[in-house]
Design a protein around this nucleic acid. Structure first.
Length: 289
DNA sequence: CGGGACTCCTGAGGGC
DNA sequence: TGCCCTCAGGAGTCCC
């Protein structure tokens, strides 16, 4: 599922709600996530008070009132639901599809919080994970160590881009998705960004013109910001849902639009689907050079 | 270090 | 209805 905008939306919506709530109990329905959950580690956060959540790339970092850190990655299908039992109304962080008190299918881990609230980690494919660290080891976390700059920060700029691609022969789409070049962009946004830049996904990075590099940087920021504003992208259709869903998917130009007419005015070409570095890729053969 | 192949896992959707 | 195939917002490891 989630790329930077979706994870950012989760972070923002959860942050308001979890602050100062205490983890009372944790239930593991299925701890065989990407990294199997170690019960003893999980126990360490019981009794701790949640302070804030930050995001780095597609990772969520949960901070407590003690020097402890919980790292969550949502993988492809991970979701976090925040549930307020008292009001009987479920507030959701993202992808809301639950409407009763029973555990739902794929609710893997449930955090029971003070004030009768719950935080649910739901993950169909179990590619996501939950890990725990001592705060003093923050800078040694392997997952975070080699991440490139945040695309929305200033250090993702023209100079950085030019320097990074020196001597590299990879294609632009792969570079955009490579987390040590820039962190947080996945398959959907890579496709969308390159369409708007009119750059073919298979263009070799060292063949990019300078103006195209500037454009890629600028539109990367634009696309991600627009998506965040719209609550991210919600791909799957949850018919029973009455919670908040993102709507950026309505603004997709190419992703998932194989054989549809290009969204550029005056262009009658059809969107082509191909495979680039093992990932589904969409582009307009006429507009993207 | 770079790049490709393969891996984790479950479900949806299409073709027959 | 069922079976089989392909595909899906990610990223780690192993091998050359």
């Amino acid at each position: 599922m989630p790329e930077l905008p979706e994870v950012e939306v989760v972070k923002r919506s959860l942050n308001n709600k979890i602050q100062n709530l205490i983890i009372k109990e944790i239930k593991i329905n299925d701890g065989s996530l990407r990294y199997p959950i170690v019960k003893n580690e999980l126990r360490k956060v019981v009794g701790l008070k949640l302070k804030k959540i930050t995001r780095r790339s597609k990772y969520l970092l949960f901070f407590f009132n003690k020097d402890f850190l919980m790292l969550i990655h949502l993988g492809m299908t991970g979701k976090l639901f925040f549930v307020n039992k008292k009001s009987k109304k479920f507030k959701t962080s993202f992808y809301y599809n639950i409407n009763n008190e029973k555990d739902q299918k794929h609710d893997r881990v449930i955090f029971y919080l003070s004030k009768n609230q719950k935080l649910i980690y739901n993950d169909v494919r179990k590619f996501g994970f939950i890990k725990f660290y001592n705060l003093k080891d923050l800078n040694d976390i392997q997952h975070l160590k080699n991440l490139g700059p945040e695309p929305l920060e200033h250090d993702f700029n023209y100079t950085y881009f030019k320097k990074y691609i020196i001597g590299r022969k990879r294609v632009i789409k792969e570079i955009l998705m490579s987390q040590n070049f820039v962190s947080g962009i996945g398959n959907i946004y890579a496709n969308e960004i390159l369409f708007l830049c009119k750059v073919k996904p298979t263009r070799n990075v060292n063949k990019l013109k300078n103006f195209e590099i500037r454009k890629i940087i600028k539109l990367t920021k634009n696309v991600l910001n627009s998506s965040i504003k719209l609550g991210g992208s919600t791909i799957k259709n949850f018919s029973s849902s009455n919670g908040k869903k993102g709507s950026f998917q309505q603004h997709f130009n190419v992703y998932g639009k194989k054989n549809e007419v290009c969204s550029n005015r005056n262009c009658v070409s059809k969107v082509v689907r191909s495979i680039v570095s093992k990932r589904s890729t969409f582009h307009c053969p006429k507009c993207q050079k």
